[in-house]
Structures are given as C-alpha cells and as structure tokens.
Design a protein around this nucleic acid. Sequence first.
DNA 1: ACAATTACGTACTAAAAAGTGCGATACACA
DNA 2: TGTGTATCGCACTTTTTAGTACGTAATTGT
Lengths: 129, 129
Amino acid sequence: MADKTYNIGVEATMEVIGGKWKAIILCHLRHDTMRTSELRRAIPQITQKMLTQQLRELEADGIVQRRVYEQVPPKVEYCLTERGESLNMILNQLCKWGEANIDERRAKGEVIELIHRDDVSLEQNQSAS
Amino acid sequence: MADKTYNIGVEATMEVIGGKWKAIILCHLRHDTMRTSELRRAIPQITQKMLTQQLRELEADGIVQRRVYEQVPPKVEYCLTERGESLNMILNQLCKWGEANIDERRAKGEVIELIHRDDVSLEQNQSAS
DNA sequence: ACAATTACGTACTAAAAAGTGCGATACACA
DNA sequence: TGTGTATCGCACTTTTTAGTACGTAATTGT
C-alpha cells in the first residue's frame, strides 16, 4: 500500500464520499438496506456501471456491506457498515443544507425543483435556540 | 437561468462543496478571514489558477465574500458569508470524520500521514450522552 | 533600469471521472 | 426456441476537472 499524506481531515473524507454519486447513494442507504435495482430506481440518472463501480469503491473503503444471495435471478443487497453509519449525521446535514439552499435560491427567483425532500424530522437534531 | 432539477438535497450541497479543493478551502476559511497568499500557503498543492477559480465559484454561490483593497501590490481577502457560515458544522464534522478515519486506517497498518489535525475542541459540539 | 511583490486572466494540455454499448450468466415461463 | 429477469464485467468514447505555462498591473526597493 503506497504512502499517503493528507493535509487536513476533510481531504480524507471527501476521498470517500466525493464524486458525483457516492453521497447520493449513501443518503439512500442510510435509511434502508437496498438491493441494486432499488438503488437504480431511487437514482434514475445513474447508470448500472456507475452504480456498481461506486458501490465497489464504498465497499473497499469499508462504508457499505454487500450481501449476495445465491439465487437466480441474482439478488444483491447493500447496507451501511458500522463505519458507514458513522457518516449518518453528516449525510443528514448535507441533505438538509441542500434543501435549505434550494429554498433560498428559489426565493431569489431561480427555477429549481427538488423531487424528494427528506423527512428526517426528529432524528439526531440539536438545533440550539 | 436554466431549469435545474435535483432528486435529493445532498446533490445541491455537493454541487457547492464538491470537487478536489472547495471543501478544503472552506475548512480553512471557517476559522479566519484569509488573503489569497495565506490560502496558498495553507494549501500547498493547489495552483494559483485553481485557487482563484474555486474561490470565484464559491463567491458566485454566495458562500464566500471577496474583499479587494485598492493598494499595490494588491490585497484581496476572503471570508465566509452568512450562508457560508451555515456550513460550519458540516465542515467541522467532515474534518473530524476524516481524522478518525485516518486513525482507523493507520491502526490497520496503512502508512498514512495527516499534517494538520484540526483542534476544533469545544466549539459547536453537541455529542449527546 | 530592473527585480520583487500580489493577485488574476487566458490558451493550451493532461488526467480523471463518467457514460455508452455490448456480452455473460442461469433459470423461469410461454 | 425465444424472452424476461437481476447483476455484473469489459472495451471504448466523451465530458469534466485539474494542471502548465505564460502574460498583465502598479508600486517599492536596489
């Protein structure tokens, strides 16, 4: 394994959840275990190749767990590992911030649509005030 | 402004803080106002072009504020806007998660180095328990 | 005169990430 | 025999992102 150097923690995090698809995949998996086809339906624009590829990388990073059922047609399920679960709070906040931001932008006249608003409501919220 | 559609909030967030440099830049700016040259020293691998380009995009997204002092040689400072500040908690957590992850990986035998460990200690932390 | 300073732009190139199109498997069912 | 299912791999192309190399400005100090 080659020597690796980070300057600041966030670099290591973005290496794991960065890119066009990973954070989205993880946001879906944080609620449920899902099979490949469910993820594909939940993320319509992703291609099969990208989905598999990103899931493989997340697996290699110890974030998701892959479970294969030996049956035909195949059935493969993915869920977060313990390390993946430790991203839960971050994922929730990323979702919420994005939603709030979309609202602000819309209030300023931009034409934006948000298909699925996450209802995390009363989970690990700690809004001081 | 062209019509834009998101499926889930996190997409909008990653559009703003994604990419190789933005989250890193923001992590540095969350403590201080900094001028261009300070940022460059804080993030040694970034090129001048990338730094400027990313800052411009963050400015366009209303995340950072650019202040130009009319003097020679030029002096330009950047700081977070209110909207940028609203990312603070996320940025802290991204840093902390990365640090913890680096520790885990090192414990498993990987040869990793982390130059700057962030000491956010007692800021807006809310660890229940 | 000339270098150093600080911030930025622009044309061009290189590398990384994502997308397309195709094939494979192995069984069920018409 | 042929079609549908669910998952994945591979070769290839396109798009996006990042990096290189260079040039500008206006002033201070040598």
